[in-house]
Amino acid sequence: MKRIAVVLLLSTLAITGVQAQKYITKNGHIRFFSSTPVEDIEAHNRQVNSALDQQSGEFVFRVLIKSFQFEKALMQEHFNENYMESDKFPNATFSGTVTNIKDVDFAKNGSYPVTVEGDLTIRGITKKISESGVLEVKDGKVSGKSTFNVLLADYGIKVPAAVANNIARSIQIDVDVLLSKLEK
């Protein structure tokens, strides 16, 4: 009986070891959306780097600020030069973990609600965040989606009085990544 238990434990470890996989993408999509009665402003970045460790739940994102595309060239210019200072702070990053990664069965298609906690760094300022999202496993790929809000003031972003009515104080961030198993 003891022997069977040891064999079972070793097999489990071996399987877990084999499954200790990373899922990655370099084409993740992040959209941000500011809505006020005066105008709506949105921008998209489709060159988002992201990696998820299936076993530890470690989840990281890295975004180049200059890769955000706006409908209006002027908004893009102001975003880079005045608000994000993208020459000085070219990246925004998130580094955290999926706290309930054990609830996600990567071998089975399905949709799993998850909580992600970690450090979000924008303009060189790091804040702890905890947001909910969904990981969807489908045919060996993992799609991650989350919508949350960030306050401009938390990251030292000041809005000039002249456009105070045009830009929301709380910006909605939509994250949408389709992660593929990293073949090694």
């Binding site: 370099k26 780097n49 890295r62 975004v63 600020i65 200059k66």
Partner: peptide, 13 residues
């Protein structure tokens, strides 16, 4: 247009 380096790749748009 070069938008930078994300520690794995150099990105051009």
């Amino acid at each position: 247009l070069c938008t930078g380096y994300n520690e794995t790749d150099v990105i051009l748009e």
